[in-house]
Nucleic acid binder design. Sequence first.
DNA 1: TAAGTATATGCAAAGAAAGATATATATTTT
DNA 2: AAAATATATATCTTTCTTTGCATATACTTA
Lengths: 109, 109
Amino acid sequence: MNKKAYQSQAELFQVLSHPVRLQILDALRSQDCCVCHLQALTKRPQAYVSQQLRVLRDFGLVSDEKDGQNVYYRLCNDMVGELLGMVLTSNGPKAVMIDCTCPRCNEVG
Amino acid sequence: MNKKAYQSQAELFQVLSHPVRLQILDALRSQDCCVCHLQALTKRPQAYVSQQLRVLRDFGLVSDEKDGQNVYYRLCNDMVGELLGMVLTSNGPKAVMIDCTCPRCNEVG
DNA sequence: TAAGTATATGCAAAGAAAGATATATATTTT
DNA sequence: AAAATATATATCTTTCTTTGCATATACTTA
């Protein structure tokens, strides 16, 4: 393996080496989420969450889709999904109460 | 999953987010190596290699064993081995000529 | 069209990591 | 015991990352 390859793989790990980005990716493993949802989940300011989403987006790990006022993010890299599954020993989707105001979180089921 | 968990997994990725450390770990996947071997492989100064080995050692990814003048390092974390196998698409051990002076690299076969 | 809500961007301060260099220690050889 | 070899550590400077904050944009509703 050559230098360039190690470099680019190191860059992937660099993107993953951040607790909030990991938390976001883990959330996106089970469902796509809007920013305000991730904001409620991580308990961080909106601008902060958007900044981390930008890092993930720029690196091609997530894609975004606008729906009205909201922007929904989804995981768009299978390898990273698997990788997270291997490392994050999350025991399935946990029923965390999240105070998110977006339509999806508040639709009548 | 809680904050602490994401934090500690981020720390693992942090350790992996370094091209030379990745190269070292990749080398150790196929065989244990002494420092001078890794020095020849990475073409970095000895002190630099030792510094990276310390990071890996402190994080529990490699262990070391002294044999005479030489110190041999080995991968000692199965999960990380697997993880690397997944990410580093190295096509098996490549026959790179390495100018290492240690006994193992120079024993008569 | 004004006000409210959701999201994105730009920038600066603080903190962390990278890499270079000097030097220390331990082992072997002469 | 001195010289040579292999490895480790300490320290410093530079560069990168993180995070907070101010502000900009875009959509929606009144």
